[in-house]
């Protein structure tokens, strides 16, 4: 497999504050690589470095075969970037917006002409080319923005929080587009804090305070976070149950609340029975503790907590 992005000890410091702390990772061509992390974890800074917008304090990365330190201009030509606050020109048509970005990426008029239908096809904008971008609903705007970012046929697309504020149905459609994009050989590098969305990524890096604390496919991450499966209990009074179980942390393991559900990270196989017993004793109505597959949210919370616990 061909390597698309290769970061080596990439670091960015602003004065005393280290935003990105020597991170290294590799992304393969055609992969959807996700960056998961809380706001301020260093996701955007990393992306901005990889795009050639910020110069790293130390370390380097090879993006599409070029060093971001030595040849940022070459890098820029080969990637598309859709920033968090991507904004279209509302009084230009869809087509005009895409042509504009294609044009400033250096495409010739003929290339733009050829590319336009391809791009519109790829993001599902056919038939809307002549409409004003400003008249489009939010979900479509997102797709137009993506179309602008891939207008010049980049090898890599960086998407910074691409689906913020888009409704779930359109989000799903958006991820289908991303999928097909990756299938056609484009590397997609995406940051998000929507846990459910991460499942669309082939590989994920979890960032916390500037560092990658874990990296891998979803099963790999789950393995790294939990030895055993999780126990799930549904109850009428989750708060009381949570307080009760938290007190017994040392014997049964850690508990967290998810709506009416409680998740317990079991210490040993006997934990399920112990939880059942404790809740019954306190007179709290509950379902039988069942083994469940941990969600990405569980994984994330667990990994971050473990990381903080270490410090």
């Amino acid at each position: 497999m061909e390597t698309s992005v290769k970061a080596e000890k990439l670091q960015k410091r602003f004065d005393k504050f280290t935003a990105v702390d020597s991170i290294s990772f590799e992304v393969e061509k055609g992969e959807i690589y996700g960056f998961l992390g809380a706001n301020g974890a260093g996701k955007t800074t990393t992306i901005r470095m990889l795009c050639g917008l910020l110069e790293p304090t130390s370390g380097d990365a090879i993006v599409a075969g070029y060093s971001i330190k030595k040849q940022p201009e070459e890098v820029k030509k080969r990637l598309g970037y859709m920033s968090q606050k991507f904004s279209l020109y509302p009084i230009l048509t869809v087509e005009e917006n895409i042509s504009f970005y294609g044009g400033i990426y250096g495409l010739t008029d003929e290339e733009i002409k050829k590319r336009l239908p391809e791009v519109c096809e790829a993001v599902g904008l056919n038939g809307l080319e002549k409409r004003l971008a400003g008249d489009m609903p939010g979900g479509l705007k997102q797709r137009i923005a993506l179309a602008c970012a891939i207008a010049h046929g980049p090898e890599i697309v960086f998407l910074d929080e691409p689906t913020a504020g888009v409704d779930p149905l359109l989000r799903r459609r958006f991820w289908e587009i991303i999928d097909s994009l990756a299938f056609s050989g484009v590397t997609v590098f995406v940051t998000t804090h929507y846990m459910d969305e991460v499942e669309n990524c082939h590989r994920i890096a979890i960032m916390h305070s500037g560092r990658i604390i874990s990296e891998g496919t979803i099963p790999e991450l789950k393995k790294a976070a939990f030895v055993n499966h999780l126990l799930e209990v549904e109850t009428d009074s989750p708060v009381r149950a949570f307080e009760l179980l938290s007190e017994a942390k040392d014997s049964i393991g850690e508990t967290s609340v998810h709506g009416a559900m409680l998740h317990v990270v079991p210490k040993d196989p006997a934990t399920a029975a112990a939880v059942d017993r404790m809740l019954s004793a306190a007179g709290i109505a509950h379902t039988r503790p069942e083994q469940v597959e941990p969600t990405m949210e569980d994984v994330f919370v667990r990994l971050v907590k473990r990381e903080e616990g270490k410090i």
């Binding site: 820029k76 990637l79 970037y81 606050k85 991507f86 904004s87 970005y101 400033i104 250096g106």
Partner: peptide, 17 residues
């Protein structure tokens, strides 16, 4: 204000252009 400038900067276009 609209953030378009930032979007332009990631492209190979130079400030002079």
């Amino acid at each position: 204000e609209s953030g378009n400038i930032e979007q332009m900067v990631v492209t190979p276009i130079t400030p002079a252009q």
